[in-house]
Design a protein around this nucleic acid. Structure first.
Lengths: 183, 183
DNA sequence: GAAGGCATGTAAGCTGTTACATGATTCT
DNA sequence: AGAATCATGTAACAGCTTACATGCCTTC
């Protein structure tokens, strides 16, 4: 999903400035399955405006810089609908964490342990954070939220229950890393 | 993780041609957490060769085009080790599927149902496929494989148990899509 | 006083994808 | 006959990230 469609999607939940859109994508409800930076959002909003998909109004604020608040037009809403109804592309998952663990026989076991431990902590924090802001009313967001929780919980549990087994396997195996690492 | 490092990682498991590397990344053991296309692998191998990270030998085959088989050099192995020991970047997950479901109140419920059902089937196929080729001997690959299974199973179970609830919620709610969709 | 949040934008550069180009062989 | 697999590579293009540029206000 490109930056333009993402902006339309976010705007369908209510008017927002570019800054606010980034916050919703980076820290808000979309955080776990979409990303976008300023460098992609501002140009996207510009193009959407040219194409008549969004309207802008400038809002003055005291003590703060002015805001450009964008809102969906009818055209924009139609376009979003068309995009949402289209079959979605495949999910993308990339993990350097798993890649490192895949090759953990080349690594000192302490490093592998440290990687797993910090990942466990990250998942814990993430789940706790999700619990707090679970005031999702609408069915869609609630469903997606639950999905995220289910997946993160499973990942956390797996790491917790298999950490020690992996480490003991590593310490009792050839330890390929030593020969190479200290040459 | 960039294409170059990925190539080094794959080569550490044994010599391979560009074609074979792509197959391992796209269909083999890395399939679920890394991706790479020919357009990124071949140039990456060229650069790695320039930098002395890999060695090449050409192998003639009868009935098949010749192969360029790459193998790690000592420098390449050292470099890989350094990359693996470095703290990994965050995992990336992007899902247009979840984005669509987040906004499912804008969609006809049949479409939402169809999306979930085909995703359920995909997860089932994927898990079955993983079961078959679970002949992972080494601790690292086995750990990573188990992680994937745990996560996919959790996702599947969630979809199976929450599908109907979502759909009944959708059919009993305002049905925002109707007004817009048929104008 | 420094750091961080609010706020908008541009531009260079990196990276990767898609499509193209080529060609033999084997399977259906 | 046509499709798929093996095999390598290039080039155009698209897209996103990072860093830069600016500036005020609030909190620590």
């Amino acid at each position: 999903m490109d930056a333009k469609t993402l902006c339309l999607a976010v705007l369908s939940r209510g008017d927002a400035s570019g800054y606010e859109i980034r916050k919703q994508v980076g820290e808000g409800p979309f955080q776990h399955f979409q990303k976008a930076s300023y460098g992609s959002i501002y140009p996207a909003l510009g193009k959407l405006h040219e194409q008549g998909m969004v309207a802008v109004r400038e809002e003055e604020q005291d003590g703060r810089p002015d805001k450009k608040v964008y809102s969906l037009t009818a055209t924009g809403r139609q376009h979003l609908l068309a995009m949402l109804a289209q079959p979605a592309g495949e999910d993308t998952y990339r993990s350097d964490f798993l890649t490192q663990l895949f090759f953990c026989h080349m690594l000192p076991p302490e490093i592998a342990a440290a990687r797993i431990d910090s990942r466990i902590q990250e998942y814990r924090d993430c789940l706790q954070h999700m619990d707090q802001k679970c005031a999702c009313a609408a069915p869609g967001p609630r469903f997606v939220h639950g999905f995220g929780q289910a997946v993160y919980s499973a990942a956390l549990t797996y790491l917790e229950t298999n950490r020690d087994r992996l480490l003991s396997e590593l310490s009792s195996s050839p330890a390929a890393h030593e020969g190479d690492a200290e040459r």
